[in-house]
């Protein structure tokens, strides 16, 4: 069971309050104008599936209810950072520097 820092609650809380919500920074293409089959396929199905730092989404479902973003190392299960939805994607090199 992990501890997860909720950027909205500003607290580090037990994983049981949270729900995983897939890879982060996958924006839904604006479908009101033409979107190619390939672009839509990528949006729906294509994921990085990285071994290592992974940009992903969580929801504080049994808490403030907010979706937020995180970078978690899929090897060590360690969170490098969590940040609010809509915030800029943090540079991995900065995160790795900081985690040292």
């Amino acid at each position: 069971m992990l501890l997860i820092h909720c950027p909205y609650c500003a607290q580090t809380l037990p994983e049981l309050e949270f729900t995983y919500a897939g890879e982060a920074h996958i924006a839904r293409p604006d479908a009101s104008s033409p979107v190619s089959d390939e672009e839509w396929r990528n949006f729906l199905f294509i994921r990085t599936n990285v071994k290592g730092p992974h940009y992903e989404r969580w929801r504080h479902s049994h808490g403030c209810g907010r979706f937020f973003n995180a970078v978690r190392d899929t090897v060590s299960d360690r969170f490098l950072i969590t940040y609010k939805a809509g915030e800029k994607r943090p540079e991995l090199s900065d995160l790795l520097e900081k985690s040292k």
Binding site: T19, A21, A27, R28, R57, R59, S61, G65, R66, F67, A85, G86
Partner: peptide, 13 residues
């Protein structure tokens, strides 16, 4: 409800 909140919070803010 989770799906609706997801679209509201992250796509249609």
């Amino acid at each position: 409800l989770n799906m609706m909140e997801d679209y509201l919070q992250t796509e249609w803010t």
